[in-house]
Design a protein around this nucleic acid. Structure first.
Lengths: 207, 207
DNA sequence: GATAATATTGACACAGTGTCAATTTGTTTG
DNA sequence: CAAACAAATTGACACTGTGTCAATATTATC
């Protein structure tokens, strides 16, 4: 995470240190409060640097959070990039449920940061955009998976993969934030299982 | 919408007029801009009243929007309250698709106001709470419908109705806002059809 | 028409933001 | 090594918007 400081000259090193101080302070303040109520002034104070300094390193609160988000986002991308090459419908279901579970588990693990991120999505345009990128990456990936399953004769071929993928991801995303807010009564496994069941085989049995 | 002014004494009437002036101005300013960039000062100026007046009638920007939301919300509740008593699975699917379509059509019709509402949900706690109420009403209703269908032997009995309802509503809600933002490529009918198809019969055909 | 009740008003104190000229710290060069 | 230069840091300042409240204006009551 930290860049290699050994080769830097003293000047550059000071810059990096200041940046780091700001990020550490920002993380702490964000987690202790909301995104909205957190002020740059608080972060600056905590970091022990002069007021203007924060604006030299970051454009504002938003950019500070975006940098802090990056780790979490990497983990999401990892989940999105999991391979999907089922041989049978059963296998597909299993893999889909696994991915849904992994997704929600990530929400649980990164709850604190995601709590802040969720608030920030509402308030900040830049962060909303950032989140959309993550979402689109997931959706695109899911679309490809659906396409694959259709081509393999496993999934219904008459549905638009992108439309289906969006709907499926949306349900997952909303539950993700419910988990983050600790508003769910059910366990993650139960949620993933239920969502997957409906998604793959539907609520109404076939004739 | 307007209350009956005929019986009011002059004083009360003045109050109502002022309130109305503020609401009209607020609607105009909100629709011309965002929720975030709209300032109370703008609304006050537009309404042609003194600065403090707005704070006498409303707690702030949020409450102003909440009052403006009410009409739209009524229409949503109407959609939520549509009867659901299918005799067959086919009938159920049809009714579900109809409701999904109605829901998205409402998004299209009330696009402008909902655009503002969506932004406000992000920023304002009060409005987020208000929206959650609407959502819960929908989800509760859908849960009951699922329960009904399960009891009637139409729907899979092994799934938790509330969990399923949430997932289903979430997908619809996200598409609602996509429609509001005019970010969809597909038509409303196609979206409703696809969502319903996956919801009712699943992406993977049964054995 | 005097008094009481209520509604309106805008000046004010406050909180937070972002900028920029001045200052401090570090690097290079003759 | 001491100018001279370059880069990083700083906090005072101007600005935007909010919410409050004592003063003022309007309407009701006796």
């Amino acid at each position: 995470m930290k860049s290699d400081e050994s080769k830097m000259d003293k000047r550059h090193l000071r810059t990096v240190r200041t940046r780091e101080k700001l990020l550490v302070a920002a993380r702490a303040v964000f987690l202790e409060n909301d995104f909205q109520t957190t002020t740059i002034s608080q972060i600056i104070k905590r970091a022990g640097v002069g007021y203007g300094t924060a604006y030299v390193h970051f454009e504002g609160k938003d950019e500070l959070l975006i940098v802090l988000m990056e780790d979490v986002m990497d983990r999401f991308h990892q989940v999105a990039e999991q391979p999907f090459e089922p041989g049978t419908a059963e296998e597909a279901k299993k893999q889909i449920e696994q991915q849904a579970t992994a997704f929600l588990q990530l929400a649980e693990q990164e709850r604190e940061m995601l709590r802040v991120v969720e608030q920030a999505i509402g308030v900040s345009y830049v962060i909303r955009t950032k989140w959309k990128q993550i979402r689109e990456r997931f959706i695109e990936r899911i679309s490809r998976d659906i396409h694959y399953a259709q081509a393999a004769g496993l999934a219904r071929p008459d549905l638009n993969p992108t439309l289906v993928a969006r709907g499926w991801f949306f349900a997952n995303e909303m539950y993700l934030f419910e988990v983050v807010r600790e508003e769910t009564t059910a366990t993650i496994e139960e949620i993933a299982e239920t969502l997957t069941a409906v998604y793959t085989t539907g609520l109404y049995p076939h004739d």
